[in-house]
């Protein structure tokens, strides 16, 4: 059976909130190392990869591999009943047809309990190759969101150019052009505002802003976001969580004919 307790329901609430507009039905794959999810959007352009490691739960127990087939809209309805600070316990039998969720308030003796019906989901899994990216940019997640939303007002696509001079996000639209350039920057007092650019070779890639703006819904999970690029391969956008847990998004590039 599965028993996994989070000290703060907000972690799961934020994760589900960040991905529910990209994927509707998906499996939460549970094993002794934790709970993982890999799902593509309907157009097969974007992929979500979540790993909530066993260490992120206290306690965590999972005797056998269990796939929890969940409709994220339904899960959202149930999670809305949890306060951010509630402790959240997930429970399921070995061959479950429902997922039990318990929310416990720390402030008082209120306990709420829900059972969510599960579904059989035949999910297509993709093998994601280990990639040495040519450019790895770490920046405040709020800054990345701002750049993406600002540029989306002008264009459907953004071109990301990473060079020794910095990283430039630029777009061309019917009403005009826009560009934002960031350089490496260290803030000793507020490291969450740091911008770090690691580069082994220059990169230039174009992506759909619609998807990037969607990924930015995960900004609530982490002050910083890491974006990894190599020419002509999908972009990786990673929000790191505590205990090596993470939420990653991959986005296929737009390439000239």
């Amino acid at each position: 059976m599965l028993e996994a307790k989070l000290d703060q329901a907000s972690i799961l609430k934020k994760v589900v909130d960040a991905i529910k507009d990209l994927v509707q039905d998906c499996n939460f794959d549970c094993n002794d190392s934790g709970i993982a999810l890999q799902a593509m959007d309907n157009s097969h352009v974007a992929l979500v990869s979540m790993a909530l490691k066993a260490e992120s739960f206290q306690p965590y127990r999972c005797d056998r591999n269990i796939a929890l087939g969940l409709n994220l809209t339904s899960l959202t309805k149930v999670l809305r009943a949890a306060q951010n600070e509630d402790m959240l316990t997930l429970r399921a039998e070995d061959a479950p047809d429902s997922l039990n969720l318990v929310f416990e308030s720390k402030a008082d003796d209120r306990i709420s309990e829900y059972d969510l019906k599960l579904m059989d989901i035949d999910q297509e899994h993709l093998g994601i190759p280990e990639t040495e990216y040519a450019a790895t940019i770490t920046l405040p997640s709020s800054e990345f969101r701002r750049i993406c939303t600002d540029l989306m007002a002008l264009s459907e696509s953004v071109t990301i150019d990473a060079s020794k001079d910095g990283v430039k996000f630029s777009c061309t639209g019917d009403i005009g052009n826009g560009a934002v350039t960031l350089r490496s920057h260290t803030n000793v007092d507020k490291p969450e505002l740091n911008v770090d650019i690691e580069l082994s070779e220059p990169v230039s890639l174009t992506f759909s802003l619609k998807y990037l703006v969607n990924f930015c819904k995960a900004s609530a999970l982490s002050h910083q976001v890491k974006i990894c690029l190599s020419n002509e391969v999908p972009l990786l956008v990673e929000y790191a969580l505590e205990n090596q847990s993470h939420l990653r998004f991959y986005l296929a590039p737009k390439i000239g004919d």
């Binding site: 593509m40 097969h44 352009v45 993709l126 696509s157 390439i255 000239g256 004919d257």
Partner: peptide, 14 residues
């Protein structure tokens, strides 16, 4: 002109 690629081209079956 650029064309949106899909992930299947880059990520194979495991």
């Amino acid at each position: 002109p650029t064309k949106q690629q899909t992930l299947g081209k880059f990520f194979g079956a495991p």
